[in-house]
Design a protein around this nucleic acid. Structure first.
Lengths: 249, 249
DNA sequence: CCAGGACCTTGACCCAAATCAAATGCCCCA
DNA sequence: TGGGGCATTTGATTTGGGTCAAGGTCCTGG
């Protein structure tokens, strides 16, 4: 069956696809996934709830269906850095690793489509197509991590905030509404503290920079968690990287 | 044939293994790799030489045989961040990507074992074992990138320096000599500027922190590029993370 | 053996972001 | 309707690391 973009792009969870419910679905991949029935289950978490603690045994891997989660790492003295951002269609867990290396926390209400580890690993071996899809996704994640390294290592606080908004606007189509005249509305699925942990800043600095961007008209705030972007191009400029790749630019 | 740890761990390049000459070799993987003959070639680069520029076409992928290279990303105004560190056995290039996303520079003299892209990709499809090895390596790289995010986001300059030395000591067995009484000697394959680009610092700060660590007896310097670590445990303490995983700890 | 240049160190000063400390707003539930 | 608790904002102050500037060291090639 041919790829059905409309069906794949829907916000409804695909009931069959094991990995990426939006870009790959039963309608695209065919019957090879039918065997997955019976090895998967859904779980929901509330904002702030911990999915797994680093060091805990994790007997499943999962695909994010809705909401957002963060992978988090800590130094002994409590300094915290987010090291992974999971949005719908992202994959959680690592084949072959039974013990979680990072703490996973729902930063907003979260819905996961989970697969029991053992049968999933068996599936990977038997089904090179899924394995290769997983490799591709991992490579994309690595690229994202590398952009993040540049952000953490070399960008100013203001550029970091702008970059985060750009990332959310580009990746989280579900969070974004386009308004007439090109205005964009972003529902922030993170607290200021989670933003700070993502950006390697303190929450006070995040708050101050949000205020500054607002004062200068780069963004508007409607409540604390809704950001309106009058000019996306302007926001991208503020983010420091000129890459015009990706949607919305 | 069973895994031969001694043979795999040798510093000699494995003439057959396409991906990781130390951990996987013809002796472990068997004949499935024989078909690789004829699709591979070696290249050497001098310290400072650029392997590929971001945006350039790259018609091969490669395995690092000796030396060290850095992947580097830049903002328009020239701020530079290293986003990948390639040591012997690391893999360079991404299947399916013909245009390099990052600039690759040899930070020391470098030897690559290269594979022409097309036949390599064909091989990946036909040989799930190699594909799965590549997935595993990519996941390891992602883990390393995540530790790096923590380093850039939350560590002090001093901790960053100590962390880099720990990483080099753990990963680059080829660079490290153990002396009696547990002393370790590290040959730094990077300039101070490359260290700064890795750590998200300026070269002046790197130099200052090296001097401080020396003054306090955490390290000794023999010339500019040879670091002697009297107590590795002490160095790990200075690095901020208490993880005692990995060799040498 | 000396000159030039690349690489590194050190000093003085400055500034962006952290830290410490108070408000303020907001939501939920009694 | 009001109060408790959390998230957020804002202010005052400090500080780690950046910036600018001046040497120093070592290697190489003439």
């Amino acid at each position: 069956m041919p790829h059905d973009a409309a069906l794949c792009a829907t916000q409804q969870p695909c009931e069959i696809c094991p990995i990426r419910y939006r870009a790959v679905c039963a309608h695209c991949e065919g019957d090879e996934l039918a065997e997955l029935e019976g090895m998967k289950f859904y779980r929901r978490y509330e904002a702030g709830q911990v999915v797994v603690w680093a060091g805990d045994r994790m007997d499943f891997v999962a695909s994010v269906i809705a909401g957002m989660a963060g992978l988090t790492q800590q130094l002994e003295d409590g300094r915290t850095q987010m090291v992974g951002l999971l949005l719908p269609s992202d994959f959680l867990g690592r084949p072959g690793r039974e013990v979680a290396a990072y703490t996973v926390t729902a930063t907003s209400d979260l819905m996961l489509c989970c697969f029991r580890r053992k049968p999933f690993e068996k599936l990977l071996i038997e089904n090179p197509r899924i394995a290769s899809r997983l490799l591709e996704m991992t490579l994309d994640e690595l690229d994202a991590a590398r952009d993040w390294l540049l952000l953490l290592g070399r960008k100013s606080a203001r550029e970091k905030i702008a970059s985060l908004l750009v990332i959310l606007a580009r990746r989280a189509a579900a969070l974004v509404k386009r308004r007439p005249e090109g205005r964009i509305v972003i529902e922030l699925p993170l607290t200021r503290e989670a933003m700070a942990d993502y950006l390697g800043l303190t929450l006070e600095t995040v708050s101050r920079q949000m205020s500054t961007l607002k004062r200068e008209g780069v963004i508007e705030l409607d409540g604390k968690r809704r950001v309106i972007v009058p000019s996306f191009v302007r926001l991208v400029t503020e983010s420091g990287d000129d890459s015009d790749g990706g949607p919305l630019s």
